[in-house]
Design a protein around this nucleic acid. Structure first.
Lengths: 172, 172
DNA sequence: CATACTGATGACACCAAGTGACATCGGCTA
DNA sequence: TAGCCGATGTCACTTGGTGTCATCAGTATG
Protein backbone atom coordinates (compact mmCIF):
# COMPACT_ATOMS: atom_id res chain seq x y z
CA UNK A 1 0.00 0.00 0.00
CA UNK A 2 2.96 2.28 0.65
CA UNK A 3 4.20 1.85 -2.89
CA UNK A 4 0.75 2.23 -4.40
CA UNK A 5 0.39 5.43 -2.44
CA UNK A 6 3.77 6.78 -3.51
CA UNK A 7 3.75 6.16 -7.24
CA UNK A 8 0.18 5.17 -7.89
CA UNK A 9 -1.11 1.70 -8.56
CA UNK A 10 -0.43 1.40 -12.27
CA UNK A 11 3.06 2.84 -11.95
CA UNK A 12 4.27 0.35 -9.39
CA UNK A 13 5.38 -3.01 -10.62
CA UNK A 14 5.06 -6.31 -8.82
CA UNK A 15 8.81 -6.68 -8.95
CA UNK A 16 9.12 -3.48 -6.91
CA UNK A 17 6.61 -4.67 -4.35
CA UNK A 18 8.41 -7.97 -4.04
CA UNK A 19 11.75 -6.24 -3.71
CA UNK A 20 10.58 -3.95 -0.92
CA UNK A 21 9.16 -6.96 0.86
CA UNK A 22 12.42 -8.81 0.41
CA UNK A 23 10.82 -11.47 -1.74
CA UNK A 24 10.52 -12.59 -5.31
CA UNK A 25 7.82 -11.80 -7.86
CA UNK A 26 7.03 -15.49 -7.93
CA UNK A 27 6.48 -15.58 -4.19
CA UNK A 28 4.18 -12.57 -4.39
CA UNK A 29 1.96 -14.42 -6.82
CA UNK A 30 1.88 -17.41 -4.55
CA UNK A 31 0.21 -15.31 -1.86
CA UNK A 32 -1.96 -13.06 -4.02
CA UNK A 33 -3.87 -14.13 -7.08
CA UNK A 34 -2.99 -10.90 -8.82
CA UNK A 35 -1.57 -7.45 -8.36
CA UNK A 36 -4.81 -5.97 -7.05
CA UNK A 37 -5.58 -8.59 -4.49
CA UNK A 38 -3.05 -7.19 -2.02
CA UNK A 39 -5.45 -4.38 -1.24
CA UNK A 40 -8.35 -6.70 -0.50
CA UNK A 41 -7.02 -8.89 2.23
CA UNK A 42 -9.65 -8.53 4.94
CA UNK A 43 -12.56 -8.41 2.52
CA UNK A 44 -13.98 -11.84 3.28
CA UNK A 45 -13.89 -10.95 6.94
CA UNK A 46 -16.21 -8.00 6.47
CA UNK A 47 -18.45 -10.23 4.39
CA UNK A 48 -18.53 -12.90 7.08
CA UNK A 49 -19.29 -10.39 9.78
CA UNK A 50 -22.21 -8.92 7.89
CA UNK A 51 -23.59 -12.37 7.14
CA UNK A 52 -23.08 -13.31 10.76
CA UNK A 53 -24.98 -10.22 11.86
CA UNK A 54 -27.92 -11.26 9.71
CA UNK A 55 -27.89 -14.75 11.12
CA UNK A 56 -27.65 -13.49 14.68
CA UNK A 57 -30.74 -11.36 14.30
CA UNK A 58 -33.83 -12.32 16.35
CA UNK A 59 -36.50 -14.50 14.73
CA UNK A 60 -38.94 -11.64 14.68
CA UNK A 61 -36.71 -9.33 12.68
CA UNK A 62 -37.98 -7.77 9.47
CA UNK A 63 -35.97 -7.62 6.26
CA UNK A 64 -35.06 -4.03 7.00
CA UNK A 65 -34.05 -5.03 10.49
CA UNK A 66 -31.64 -7.57 9.13
CA UNK A 67 -30.18 -5.04 6.74
CA UNK A 68 -29.71 -2.69 9.65
CA UNK A 69 -27.89 -5.36 11.61
CA UNK A 70 -25.53 -6.03 8.72
CA UNK A 71 -24.84 -2.30 8.44
CA UNK A 72 -24.05 -2.12 12.13
CA UNK A 73 -21.49 -4.86 11.67
CA UNK A 74 -19.97 -2.98 8.76
CA UNK A 75 -19.89 0.21 10.80
CA UNK A 76 -18.00 -1.50 13.60
CA UNK A 77 -15.40 -2.74 11.19
CA UNK A 78 -15.01 0.55 9.35
CA UNK A 79 -14.52 2.48 12.58
CA UNK A 80 -11.99 -0.04 13.72
CA UNK A 81 -9.89 0.42 10.60
CA UNK A 82 -10.66 4.01 9.85
CA UNK A 83 -7.02 5.06 9.63
CA UNK A 84 -6.39 2.24 7.25
CA UNK A 85 -9.59 2.44 5.25
CA UNK A 86 -9.35 6.05 4.19
CA UNK A 87 -5.99 6.01 2.37
CA UNK A 88 -6.84 2.63 0.94
CA UNK A 89 -10.03 4.10 -0.46
CA UNK A 90 -8.11 6.97 -2.05
CA UNK A 91 -5.81 4.53 -3.80
CA UNK A 92 -8.70 2.47 -5.09
CA UNK A 93 -10.63 5.53 -6.21
CA UNK A 94 -7.66 6.56 -8.34
CA UNK A 95 -7.56 3.37 -10.38
CA UNK A 96 -10.27 1.92 -12.54
CA UNK A 97 -8.74 -1.52 -12.31
CA UNK A 98 -8.92 -1.43 -8.53
CA UNK A 99 -12.48 -0.16 -8.59
CA UNK A 100 -13.43 -3.13 -10.72
CA UNK A 101 -12.00 -5.45 -8.14
CA UNK A 102 -13.81 -3.66 -5.35
CA UNK A 103 -17.08 -3.93 -7.21
CA UNK A 104 -16.80 -7.65 -7.63
CA UNK A 105 -16.14 -8.00 -3.92
CA UNK A 106 -19.46 -6.20 -3.59
CA UNK A 107 -21.32 -8.78 -5.64
CA UNK A 108 -19.67 -11.50 -3.60
CA UNK A 109 -21.09 -9.85 -0.50
CA UNK A 110 -24.47 -9.55 -2.13
CA UNK A 111 -24.47 -13.23 -2.98
CA UNK A 112 -23.51 -14.23 0.53
CA UNK A 113 -26.09 -11.99 2.14
CA UNK A 114 -28.77 -13.09 -0.28
CA UNK A 115 -28.30 -16.67 0.71
CA UNK A 116 -28.30 -15.75 4.40
CA UNK A 117 -31.51 -13.80 3.95
CA UNK A 118 -33.15 -16.67 2.10
CA UNK A 119 -32.19 -18.96 4.92
CA UNK A 120 -34.13 -16.59 7.15
CA UNK A 121 -37.27 -17.11 5.10
CA UNK A 122 -37.20 -14.28 2.60
CA UNK A 123 -38.32 -14.98 -0.96
CA UNK A 124 -35.69 -15.24 -3.67
CA UNK A 125 -36.24 -11.87 -5.24
CA UNK A 126 -36.80 -10.11 -1.95
CA UNK A 127 -33.61 -11.52 -0.51
CA UNK A 128 -31.66 -10.49 -3.56
CA UNK A 129 -33.08 -6.99 -3.45
CA UNK A 130 -32.47 -6.62 0.26
CA UNK A 131 -28.84 -7.62 -0.17
CA UNK A 132 -28.44 -5.16 -3.01
CA UNK A 133 -30.00 -2.42 -0.93
CA UNK A 134 -27.72 -3.14 1.95
CA UNK A 135 -24.61 -2.91 -0.17
CA UNK A 136 -25.89 0.22 -1.87
CA UNK A 137 -26.43 1.95 1.43
CA UNK A 138 -23.05 0.82 2.60
CA UNK A 139 -21.29 2.13 -0.50
CA UNK A 140 -23.10 5.46 -0.61
CA UNK A 141 -22.59 5.98 3.09
CA UNK A 142 -18.97 4.95 2.88
CA UNK A 143 -18.20 7.55 0.26
CA UNK A 144 -19.87 10.25 2.26
CA UNK A 145 -18.10 9.11 5.40
CA UNK A 146 -14.70 9.19 3.74
CA UNK A 147 -15.24 12.52 2.03
CA UNK A 148 -16.74 14.22 5.04
CA UNK A 149 -14.45 17.04 6.19
CA UNK A 150 -15.34 16.71 9.86
CA UNK A 151 -15.44 13.13 11.01
CA UNK A 152 -18.77 11.52 11.84
CA UNK A 153 -19.73 8.05 12.94
CA UNK A 154 -20.29 5.70 10.01
CA UNK A 155 -23.32 4.31 11.73
CA UNK A 156 -24.93 7.72 11.74
CA UNK A 157 -24.23 8.34 8.06
CA UNK A 158 -25.58 4.93 7.16
CA UNK A 159 -28.74 5.52 9.17
CA UNK A 160 -29.37 8.76 7.37
CA UNK A 161 -28.77 7.22 3.98
CA UNK A 162 -31.08 4.33 4.77
CA UNK A 163 -33.75 6.76 5.92
CA UNK A 164 -33.46 8.72 2.71
CA UNK A 165 -33.69 5.54 0.72
CA UNK A 166 -36.91 4.60 2.45
CA UNK A 167 -38.32 8.03 1.89
CA UNK A 168 -37.43 7.79 -1.76
CA UNK A 169 -38.90 4.35 -2.31
CA UNK A 170 -42.08 4.94 -0.38
CA UNK A 171 -43.05 8.24 -1.94
CA UNK A 172 -46.28 8.45 -3.89
CA UNK B 1 -18.12 -13.04 -29.52
CA UNK B 2 -18.04 -16.17 -31.67
CA UNK B 3 -14.58 -17.05 -30.42
CA UNK B 4 -15.40 -16.23 -26.82
CA UNK B 5 -18.41 -18.51 -27.13
CA UNK B 6 -16.44 -21.36 -28.69
CA UNK B 7 -13.41 -21.57 -26.44
CA UNK B 8 -14.34 -19.30 -23.58
CA UNK B 9 -13.03 -15.84 -22.90
CA UNK B 10 -9.79 -16.65 -21.14
CA UNK B 11 -8.83 -19.32 -23.65
CA UNK B 12 -9.04 -17.11 -26.69
CA UNK B 13 -6.12 -14.86 -27.43
CA UNK B 14 -6.26 -11.44 -29.00
CA UNK B 15 -4.07 -12.72 -31.82
CA UNK B 16 -6.77 -15.25 -32.66
CA UNK B 17 -9.48 -12.62 -32.68
CA UNK B 18 -7.40 -10.40 -34.90
CA UNK B 19 -6.63 -13.26 -37.23
CA UNK B 20 -10.27 -14.22 -37.66
CA UNK B 21 -11.07 -10.58 -38.34
CA UNK B 22 -8.25 -10.42 -40.89
CA UNK B 23 -6.39 -7.82 -38.90
CA UNK B 24 -3.41 -7.44 -36.61
CA UNK B 25 -3.24 -7.55 -32.86
CA UNK B 26 -2.08 -3.95 -32.98
CA UNK B 27 -5.12 -2.87 -34.95
CA UNK B 28 -7.41 -4.61 -32.48
CA UNK B 29 -5.98 -2.54 -29.67
CA UNK B 30 -6.47 0.61 -31.68
CA UNK B 31 -10.21 0.01 -31.70
CA UNK B 32 -10.65 -1.51 -28.25
CA UNK B 33 -8.91 -0.37 -25.12
CA UNK B 34 -8.50 -3.97 -23.99
CA UNK B 35 -9.57 -7.52 -24.62
CA UNK B 36 -12.84 -7.16 -22.72
CA UNK B 37 -14.04 -4.02 -24.34
CA UNK B 38 -15.17 -5.84 -27.48
CA UNK B 39 -18.17 -7.12 -25.60
CA UNK B 40 -19.23 -3.68 -24.40
CA UNK B 41 -19.67 -1.74 -27.58
CA UNK B 42 -23.17 -0.38 -27.25
CA UNK B 43 -22.90 0.27 -23.54
CA UNK B 44 -22.72 4.05 -23.71
CA UNK B 45 -25.79 3.98 -25.92
CA UNK B 46 -27.87 2.29 -23.25
CA UNK B 47 -26.54 4.76 -20.75
CA UNK B 48 -27.42 7.71 -22.95
CA UNK B 49 -30.91 6.40 -23.59
CA UNK B 50 -31.62 5.96 -19.92
CA UNK B 51 -30.31 9.42 -19.14
CA UNK B 52 -32.34 10.79 -22.02
CA UNK B 53 -35.45 9.12 -20.68
CA UNK B 54 -34.92 10.83 -17.34
CA UNK B 55 -34.47 14.20 -18.97
CA UNK B 56 -37.53 13.72 -21.17
CA UNK B 57 -39.75 13.09 -18.19
CA UNK B 58 -42.47 15.68 -17.40
CA UNK B 59 -41.70 18.39 -14.86
CA UNK B 60 -44.17 16.91 -12.42
CA UNK B 61 -42.51 13.51 -12.32
CA UNK B 62 -41.44 12.01 -9.01
CA UNK B 63 -38.08 10.36 -8.45
CA UNK B 64 -39.68 6.96 -8.82
CA UNK B 65 -41.33 8.14 -12.00
CA UNK B 66 -37.98 9.06 -13.45
CA UNK B 67 -36.55 5.71 -12.47
CA UNK B 68 -39.48 4.07 -14.18
CA UNK B 69 -38.85 6.03 -17.35
CA UNK B 70 -35.20 5.00 -17.38
CA UNK B 71 -36.22 1.37 -16.93
CA UNK B 72 -38.63 1.65 -19.84
CA UNK B 73 -35.80 2.86 -22.02
CA UNK B 74 -33.67 -0.05 -20.89
CA UNK B 75 -36.51 -2.46 -21.59
CA UNK B 76 -36.87 -1.18 -25.14
CA UNK B 77 -33.20 -1.70 -25.79
CA UNK B 78 -33.04 -5.15 -24.21
CA UNK B 79 -36.01 -6.39 -26.22
CA UNK B 80 -34.48 -5.02 -29.38
CA UNK B 81 -31.28 -6.98 -28.84
CA UNK B 82 -32.66 -9.97 -27.01
CA UNK B 83 -31.08 -12.51 -29.34
CA UNK B 84 -27.77 -10.79 -28.89
CA UNK B 85 -28.03 -9.99 -25.22
CA UNK B 86 -28.64 -13.52 -23.97
CA UNK B 87 -25.54 -15.30 -25.30
CA UNK B 88 -23.47 -12.24 -24.48
CA UNK B 89 -24.70 -12.47 -20.93
CA UNK B 90 -23.75 -16.14 -20.73
CA UNK B 91 -20.23 -15.36 -21.84
CA UNK B 92 -19.89 -12.58 -19.31
CA UNK B 93 -21.34 -14.67 -16.53
CA UNK B 94 -18.67 -17.28 -17.18
CA UNK B 95 -15.73 -14.94 -16.63
CA UNK B 96 -14.91 -12.96 -13.54
CA UNK B 97 -12.85 -10.52 -15.53
CA UNK B 98 -15.78 -9.74 -17.79
CA UNK B 99 -18.10 -9.37 -14.84
CA UNK B 100 -15.76 -6.79 -13.40
CA UNK B 101 -15.96 -4.79 -16.59
CA UNK B 102 -19.73 -5.05 -16.63
CA UNK B 103 -19.91 -3.80 -13.08
CA UNK B 104 -17.88 -0.73 -13.81
CA UNK B 105 -20.15 0.06 -16.70
CA UNK B 106 -22.87 -0.02 -14.11
CA UNK B 107 -21.20 2.61 -11.94
CA UNK B 108 -20.70 4.73 -15.02
CA UNK B 109 -24.44 4.54 -15.61
CA UNK B 110 -25.09 5.39 -11.99
CA UNK B 111 -22.88 8.45 -12.22
CA UNK B 112 -24.56 9.65 -15.39
CA UNK B 113 -28.05 9.11 -14.02
CA UNK B 114 -27.15 10.73 -10.73
CA UNK B 115 -26.11 13.88 -12.46
CA UNK B 116 -29.25 13.85 -14.62
CA UNK B 117 -31.39 13.40 -11.53
CA UNK B 118 -29.65 16.24 -9.74
CA UNK B 119 -30.28 18.45 -12.74
CA UNK B 120 -33.93 17.66 -12.21
CA UNK B 121 -33.81 19.02 -8.71
CA UNK B 122 -33.14 15.98 -6.56
CA UNK B 123 -30.79 16.33 -3.63
CA UNK B 124 -27.30 14.86 -3.90
CA UNK B 125 -27.85 11.80 -1.78
CA UNK B 126 -31.33 11.19 -3.09
CA UNK B 127 -30.16 11.37 -6.68
CA UNK B 128 -27.33 8.98 -5.95
CA UNK B 129 -29.63 6.54 -4.24
CA UNK B 130 -32.24 6.73 -6.96
CA UNK B 131 -29.63 5.98 -9.60
CA UNK B 132 -28.35 3.04 -7.56
CA UNK B 133 -31.87 1.74 -7.17
CA UNK B 134 -32.54 1.99 -10.85
CA UNK B 135 -29.46 0.02 -11.76
CA UNK B 136 -30.19 -2.54 -9.06
CA UNK B 137 -33.67 -3.14 -10.40
CA UNK B 138 -32.29 -3.35 -13.90
CA UNK B 139 -29.65 -5.90 -12.94
CA UNK B 140 -31.92 -8.07 -10.84
CA UNK B 141 -34.63 -7.98 -13.47
CA UNK B 142 -32.16 -8.67 -16.23
CA UNK B 143 -30.91 -11.82 -14.59
CA UNK B 144 -34.43 -13.07 -14.04
CA UNK B 145 -35.35 -12.18 -17.61
CA UNK B 146 -32.40 -14.05 -19.06
CA UNK B 147 -32.84 -17.10 -16.86
CA UNK B 148 -36.58 -17.33 -17.30
CA UNK B 149 -37.45 -20.57 -19.12
CA UNK B 150 -40.49 -19.14 -20.87
CA UNK B 151 -39.86 -15.69 -22.31
CA UNK B 152 -41.50 -12.69 -20.70
CA UNK B 153 -41.34 -9.00 -21.43
CA UNK B 154 -38.45 -7.30 -19.63
CA UNK B 155 -40.72 -4.42 -18.77
CA UNK B 156 -43.01 -6.74 -16.87
CA UNK B 157 -40.18 -8.33 -14.93
CA UNK B 158 -38.76 -4.94 -14.06
CA UNK B 159 -42.14 -3.69 -12.88
CA UNK B 160 -42.50 -6.66 -10.58
CA UNK B 161 -39.02 -6.25 -9.20
CA UNK B 162 -39.57 -2.57 -8.58
CA UNK B 163 -42.84 -3.32 -6.84
CA UNK B 164 -41.14 -5.83 -4.58
CA UNK B 165 -38.42 -3.36 -3.81
CA UNK B 166 -40.98 -0.78 -2.72
CA UNK B 167 -42.75 -3.33 -0.61
CA UNK B 168 -39.47 -4.26 1.01
CA UNK B 169 -38.35 -0.70 1.72
CA UNK B 170 -41.71 0.52 2.97
CA UNK B 171 -42.45 -2.28 5.40
CA UNK B 172 -42.77 -1.49 9.05
C1' DC C 1 -0.31 15.16 -63.74
C1' DA C 2 2.81 15.45 -59.82
C1' DT C 3 3.20 16.38 -55.10
C1' DA C 4 2.12 16.51 -50.52
C1' DC C 5 -0.88 15.34 -46.87
C1' DT C 6 -3.64 12.27 -44.02
C1' DG C 7 -5.72 8.32 -41.82
C1' DA C 8 -5.62 3.52 -41.32
C1' DT C 9 -2.88 -0.41 -40.97
C1' DG C 10 1.29 -3.42 -40.51
C1' DA C 11 5.86 -4.60 -38.45
C1' DC C 12 8.66 -4.85 -34.73
C1' DA C 13 10.52 -4.30 -30.35
C1' DC C 14 9.50 -3.90 -25.79
C1' DC C 15 7.45 -4.03 -20.87
C1' DA C 16 4.81 -6.07 -17.27
C1' DA C 17 1.46 -9.54 -15.45
C1' DG C 18 0.99 -14.20 -14.65
C1' DT C 19 2.20 -19.34 -14.84
C1' DG C 20 4.57 -23.88 -14.99
C1' DA C 21 8.50 -26.68 -13.87
C1' DC C 22 12.24 -27.64 -11.37
C1' DA C 23 15.99 -26.64 -7.95
C1' DT C 24 17.16 -25.35 -3.26
C1' DC C 25 17.09 -24.99 1.52
C1' DG C 26 15.59 -25.10 6.14
C1' DG C 27 13.31 -27.45 9.74
C1' DC C 28 11.10 -31.54 11.45
C1' DT C 29 10.50 -36.46 12.16
C1' DA C 30 11.54 -41.55 11.93
C1' DT D 1 21.81 -39.66 9.87
C1' DA D 2 18.39 -40.06 6.32
C1' DG D 3 14.35 -38.69 4.47
C1' DC D 4 10.36 -35.71 4.06
C1' DC D 5 7.93 -31.38 3.38
C1' DG D 6 6.67 -26.64 2.92
C1' DA D 7 8.30 -22.28 1.48
C1' DT D 8 11.07 -19.87 -1.56
C1' DG D 9 14.15 -18.91 -5.61
C1' DT D 10 15.31 -19.47 -10.65
C1' DC D 11 14.20 -19.51 -15.22
C1' DA D 12 11.72 -19.83 -19.24
C1' DC D 13 7.52 -18.85 -21.43
C1' DT D 14 2.84 -16.96 -22.81
C1' DT D 15 -0.09 -13.13 -23.35
C1' DG D 16 -2.02 -8.45 -22.83
C1' DG D 17 -0.86 -4.01 -24.01
C1' DT D 18 2.06 0.10 -25.88
C1' DG D 19 5.40 3.08 -28.44
C1' DT D 20 7.56 3.89 -32.77
C1' DC D 21 8.24 3.89 -37.29
C1' DA D 22 7.20 2.25 -42.09
C1' DT D 23 3.78 1.53 -45.62
C1' DC D 24 0.07 2.45 -48.50
C1' DA D 25 -4.23 4.04 -50.33
C1' DG D 26 -7.07 7.88 -51.14
C1' DT D 27 -7.53 12.78 -51.63
C1' DA D 28 -6.73 17.57 -51.96
C1' DT D 29 -3.83 21.04 -54.06
C1' DG D 30 -0.69 23.30 -57.22
Amino acid sequence: MALYGERGYEQTTVAQIAERAGLTKRTFFRYFADKREVLFWGAELLERQMVGAIEATPESASALGMIGAALEAAAARFEEFREFAVPRHRIIAASRELQERELIKGVSMIAAMTSALRARGLGDTTADLAAHLCVTVMQVAFRQWVDDPEPRAFQQVADEVLAQLRELACAG
